[in-house]
């Protein structure tokens, strides 16, 4: 297998199961060579991988490096590796920043919001995909509209206010829960790949719709639901503006607002700021390591359908 040039884009996309066999040819190769099985490591590919890791990991490592410096150290040498690591920054940041409650709030909002959102997506997407609900043609349009609704910050605020839910965790969770975005569209696409005979078989056996959803559809749709959940969760996790407007009590702030306010207050003390950022980032990375398996499998399943 030859490659024209060394750009990654020109590399073959081999599907799973085959060994990687292509070698990095000299850039001047032109004519395709006959396929041969050669057991040489694809150096070029590995170099690219290392570069990739550098681009994505170095910034985080730099953050860690800065977090371990005192302010004086940082001013003296912002870039170099820290010589006298100190954990005091972390202690200070934790004490001054209420990060414990920020992280907890973010988790509650994300899990709650994405959870409710996913449930809504399923409850709304399944009947539409199967055609069990009247008005079959307009619902997909409605779902598409969900994707690009206008920025309704102002009116969402007024709505929550009139419902008496301003500055309440419940109000915020409800507001982010409906940010389902592309979920329903994705879900309806997936459901179409489930054979309708399954529904009918379950119904013949006397299974009600509700039970069917929970016992049969849910496990089958798990990959798609996982993807939808994760997409919405990521959005909620990153959400900063709604939180600024809809929440007033500092105790209820999610990380985004809390960290940003911290930056506003201590913007010059990079060591402290970096430590605060690390406090927020580390649980994310750790949690991510655990769920990333589900993520890839989930998306694989969803898109295959």
């Amino acid at each position: 297998m030859t490659m024209t040039g060394s750009s990654r884009r020109a590399q073959t996309s081999r599907t799973d199961g085959e060994d990687g066999l292509a070698a990095l040819p000299p850039p001047s190769s032109a004519a395709p060579r006959p396929r041969r099985r050669r057991r040489r490591a694809p150096v070029g590919a590995y170099i690219c991988l290392v570069l990739l890791a550098a681009v994505f990991l170095l910034p985080l490592l730099f953050l860690l490096n800065t977090a371990l410096k005192s302010d004086a150290d940082f001013l003296a040498d912002p870039v170099g590796i820290v010589t006298e690591p100190r954990l005091q920054n972390f202690v200070d940041a934790w004490v001054q920043g209420h990060f414990g409650s920020y992280i907890l709030n973010s988790i509650v909002y994300t899990l709650g919001g994405a959870g409710i959102g996913t449930v809504i997506t399923m409850l709304v997407g399944f009947p539409v995909a199967r055609g069990y609900i009247a008005g079959g043609r307009i619902w997909p349009i409605v779902f598409a509209l969900l994707l690009f609704l206008p920025n309704s910050l102002i009116t969402q605020f007024q709505l929550l206010l009139r419902l008496g839910l301003y500055d309440s965790r419940l109000g915020y969770v409800l507001m982010v829960a409906v940010g389902v975005g592309v979920g329903p569209l994705l879900f309806t696409g997936f459901v179409k790949s489930l054979p309708i005979e399954l529904d009918e078989a379950a119904a013949i056996d006397g299974c009600g719709y509700g039970r069917y959803l929970v016992s049969f559809a849910l496990p089958l749709c798990r990959p798609a639901l996982t993807t939808i959940f994760i997409l919405q969760a990521v959005w909620i996790w990153n959400e900063i503006i709604l939180a600024t407007v809809l929440l007033a009590d500092q105790e209820k702030f999610p990380i985004t607002v809390g960290l940003f306010a911290f930056k506003g207050a201590y913007s010059n003390q990079w060591g402290l700021l970096a430590a605060a950022t690390m406090i927020v980032a580390v649980p994310l990375v750790v949690g991510y390591i655990f769920i990333q398996r589900y993520l890839v499998n989930g998306v694989l399943g969803a898109v295959k359908g």
Binding site: F157, L161, Y166, D167, A248, A261, A265
Partner: peptide, 22 residues
């Protein structure tokens, strides 16, 4: 209950809290 808000987001927070009588 003392809240300090960065200048950039002050107006937004104030507007919401005044409206909410908070």
């Amino acid at each position: 209950k003392f809240t300090t808000v960065p200048n950039d987001t002050y107006e937004a927070s104030l507007s919401s809290r005044l409206t909410a009588k908070n």
